[in-house]
């Protein structure tokens, strides 16, 4: 594969690490605009020297490195630590899912049922629309009637984002829960487990 081909390859296909669905970028920017305003976001996008110039579409795929670059820049700008920012973004993202894809949520009795359905229900639908999507893996294990252990594995360093999603899910269903996080050291991918215990 020569330089010529590489040159013609659109940035979204260049394997700079792995790819992330465009919806994540679009929603991150929307959250940032809500928090710090459009002008500040524009400024950050200009400074980041992104291969996409900050133009993202929900239906595209973009390098994960750009997402991390944006998270870092937003963290610097707001003074919110990156991990916290990822977690907040996870909760934001969950709200977006509820709004855009309500069908997934209507028949679920509680957060545990929703979390258990990610792999075999949600991701199945995502792959129908985006066969090239690089999705993380969510293994779940029921720990009795009101507890569930969810293991997240991904080549992308988004464990805090995942935690935000889990928290967002629990918030959505309204039943309080205790969420315990445990990191699973792994040289090849980012992995952690969340044990969700429903209360009340």
């Amino acid at each position: 594969m020569g330089m010529g081909l590489l040159h013609r390859t659109p940035p979204t296909l260049q394997r700079m690490g792995t790819l992330v669905k465009g919806i994540v970028f679009v929603e991150l920017i929307r959250m940032a605009e809500t928090a710090i305003g459009e002008d500040a976001v524009d400024q950050i996008l200009d400074q980041c020297n992104l291969s996409t110039d900050g133009a993202y579409s929900t239906v595209g795929n973009y390098p994960c490195s750009e997402l991390m670059q944006l998270v870092e820049a937003l963290s610097n700008h707001t003074g919110t630590p990156q991990q916290e920012l990822q977690r907040l973004f996870g909760k934001w993202m969950h709200e977006h899912f509820v709004h855009s894809y309500p069908a997934f949520f209507v028949d679920k009795p509680d957060a545990l049922a929703m979390l258990a359905a990610i792999e075999d229900e949600v991701h199945v639908e995502v792959r129908k629309l985006y066969p090239d999507a690089e999705l993380p893996r969510f293994e779940t294990e029921r720990m009795g009637s009101d507890a569930l252990r969810l293991t997240y594995r991904s080549p992308r360093p988004l464990t805090d984002f995942c935690q935000g999603l889990v928290e967002g899910c629990v918030d959505h269903f309204g039943q309080p829960a205790e969420i315990r996080r445990e990191s699973l050291p792994n040289s090849e991918e980012h992995a952690c487990a969340f044990t969700v215990n429903l209360r009340g």
Partner: peptide, 8 residues
């Protein structure tokens, strides 16, 4: 598939 459209 995800080719970026030319900028208008």
């Amino acid at each position: 598939m995800t080719e970026r459209p030319a900028t208008p």
